[in-house]
């Protein structure tokens, strides 16, 4: 049984005050997320990621289409007891403490009274906020609020978790922790669906990703599948202002910026390149496999969409 089945979700808003005209926020979207996977929902800002999540949460009603979550109608209140949701840039009741807030959410989710305070305490530990008793949420930093947001999403031990931009507002350490947490959730057998516009996060975490742009789905697949086409390349960076002929002979495409040179070569020529640089007594700065492959795929997809749209117009 798939965790999420989106069956042709479509959303059109009426915009304008006087003469309303339709604006399409989401073209019919079909998407299936398997049980137990981490699924990345990628796209630039304004692509329709948040709209999709709001539709799934029942915050916005679709113009057409429906969905099934954990095999049930998506608006069914019984389903909602089994899902968790972290909205984008979450914000909570200013005058409550984190304990009170989580306790309130636990009540709403139907967590039994005996278990509540233990669960709340454990959650705050888990998201790295152990020392916040008695502090009202209005005194929390953005990063702390994000952590509270994550805590409230997984508080009631849901089977399916939705995160909207979970890394935003976090420092590098925090991002790391959230990544670890998502992996843990996967290990616990939960399905994680998260949206992001930061590709490296998706690349590092996701089993599969979907790419959405201007309300339309551009591609779905496993990260390996989407990136395999550009695999086997390395990026070599050294200090200098010129490209030695021996490097050119390797067939590298080189770019000179300031006093560094960047070259992309195939992985098999890596040793030859190092030798060439050593011979020329040039200082090697780094040599890394090309990590931007998903980004390349992404950019290429978007560009293709743009040109198609351009041709159409």
């Amino acid at each position: 049984m798939p965790a999420i089945e989106i069956l042709g979700f479509e959303k059109t808003y009426m915009v304008g005050f006087w003469r309303k005209r339709p604006k399409c926020a989401l073209s019919p979207l079909h998407l299936t997320v398997r049980d137990g996977e981490i699924f990345g929902f990628l796209g630039p800002n304004g692509a329709g990621k948040t709209t999709t999540l709001k539709l799934l949460m029942g915050l916005v009603f679709p113009t057409a289409g429906s969905a099934r979550l954990l095999g049930q109608e998506w608006t069914d209140p019984r389903v909602k007891a089994q899902i968790g949701f972290l909205p984008e840039q979450p914000y909570f009741y200013d005058h409550l403490t984190a304990h009170e807030l989580l306790n309130y959410y636990a009540q709403l989710s139907g967590v039994p009274g005996k278990e509540r305070s233990r669960r709340v305490e454990a959650m705050l530990q888990r998201v790295g906020l152990p020392e916040v008793k008695g502090v009202q949420l209005r005194k929390f930093s953005k990063g702390m609020l994000q952590r509270v947001g994550i805590a409230q999403a997984i508080l009631h031990d849901p089977k399916l978790v939705f995160f909207d931009e979970p890394m935003s507002g976090l420092d590098p350490m925090g991002r790391r922790e959230v990544r670890d947490l998502m992996e843990q959730l996967k290990h616990e057998g939960k399905t994680v669906f998260f949206s992001t516009h930061i590709l490296s996060d998706a690349e590092a975490l996701c089993d599969r990703v979907a790419i959405i742009h201007k309300g339309e789905l551009r591609g779905v697949g496993a990260v390996e599948d989407l990136t395999s086409s550009v695999q086997g390349k390395v990026e070599v960076i050294w200090q200098g202002t010129q490209v030695p002929t021996s490097m050119k002979a390797l067939g590298a495409e080189c770019h000179v910026t300031g006093d560094t040179v960047r070259a992309i070569i195939s992985e098999s020529q890596q040793d030859a390149a190092i030798d060439a640089l050593r011979r020329e007594r040039l200082r090697l700065i780094s040599i890394v496999p090309v990590r931007t492959s998903l980004e390349a795929y992404f950019v290429e997809k978007l560009q293709r969409a743009e040109t198609t749209a351009g041709r159409m117009a």
Binding site: G58, L59, A81, Y91
Partner: peptide
């Protein structure tokens, strides 16, 4: 303030 999102995504 979008506090409603976290309430309505629960069985409320």
């Amino acid at each position: 303030k979008r506090t409603l999102y976290t309430v309505l995504s629960r069985p409320v």
